Simulated scan of single mutants.
Amino acid sequence: MTDPKLIEKAIKGDDGAFLLLMKQHKEQLYRTAFLYLKNEADAVEAVQEVTFRAYRSMRKLKEPSYFSTYLIRIMLNYCNDQVKRQKKTMINGELAASASKSDSYEYMEIEEALSRLEEKYQKVITLKYVHDLKIKEIAEFMKCPESTVKTWLTKGLSLLRQQLDEKGGNSHV
């Protein structure tokens, strides 16, 4: 949990406080970017761009307790824009972005299965299990009722399990 006083200092323009906050969230932001962009260099660039955007608009943050959600929203918006841009640069029917490499075959299977789900299912699963957000926070983030988030989460996990079972993978999801 991030110290609310540190966030308040950053909102008031304390560069040192902002830097500390970004160091605390750097790994989480990188993982999110890598999950979407599937490329180490693009993920690092995304973290840099999100840091800049967060710094530029930090004073607009009204509620310090939403700082993590604020960063995640900026990251997801940036990643969605980048993915759309990548899709526009198709060469011979394949994305120009290179596929991710992972040490874990199981992780690659889950990542591949997750990428085949509808975007709403991908988002709720990522926000819940990668960012460890509560259902209420996800609902606020996605601007929908909590019951909808619960439904999407249940349905998304079920579809994810089905895909992994069909491939003969482990359904540890």
Rank of each mutant, 00 (worst) to 15 (best):
T151K: 06
Q24W: 06
K62P: 00
I125W: 01
W152E: 03
S57Q: 05
E111H: 14
E140D: 15
N77T: 05
S115N: 10
I74Y: 11
L76D: 04
Y66E: 06
P4T: 13
E45R: 08
L61P: 03
G156R: 02
V83T: 09
N92M: 15
F67I: 03
E118L: 08
G168E: 08
S102L: 07
T2D: 07
E45I: 13
L71P: 02
M1S: 11
A10F: 00
K5N: 10
L159I: 05
I7W: 02
M1E: 11
R73S: 10
S100M: 10
E27V: 14
N77M: 07
S102T: 08
Y121F: 12
K88P: 04
Y121D: 08
Q162R: 03
L37G: 01
K120Y: 01
I125A: 04
E109Y: 10
D42G: 07
T89E: 13
D15L: 15
N39G: 03
I125G: 00
L35F: 10
A113K: 05
L133S: 00
A43T: 06
R59N: 03
E111C: 09
T126E: 04
H172W: 02
S98M: 13
V50C: 04
P4V: 14
T51M: 06
T154F: 14
M58N: 00
F52P: 02
K23W: 03
L160H: 09
V44D: 03
S147M: 11
A33C: 10
K84W: 00
L71K: 05
L114A: 05
E118T: 00
T154K: 12
C144M: 14
G13Q: 09
I72W: 04
E27H: 13
G156C: 10
L95Q: 04
I138T: 03
A139W: 07
M142D: 02
Y70N: 05
F18I: 12
E8G: 00
E109P: 01
G93Y: 10
G169H: 14
M22N: 06
D14P: 03
N39T: 04
V173D: 06
E8C: 01
L21C: 06
S115H: 13
R56K: 13
K150H: 05
A113F: 04
Q163V: 14
E45Y: 02
K88V: 11
K84H: 07
F141K: 08
K87G: 14
S65M: 07
N80Q: 11
Y107W: 14
E146C: 15
N170M: 02
S115V: 09
L133D: 04
A46D: 06
H172I: 07
L117E: 01
L21A: 07
L61H: 10
T2W: 07
Y70C: 05
Q28F: 01
M108H: 11
Y129G: 12
Y121C: 10
M58E: 00
L133Q: 01
D132P: 00
E111L: 15
K128V: 12
D14T: 07
G168R: 07
S98L: 15
V47N: 02
L95G: 02
G93L: 12
M90I: 14
H172A: 09
T89P: 03
A97K: 05
Y66V: 03
L95V: 08
R31F: 13
L37W: 00
R53E: 05
D14K: 03
L157H: 03
R116W: 09
I125N: 02
L153T: 08
M142T: 08
A99K: 15
E140W: 15
E27Q: 14
R56G: 05
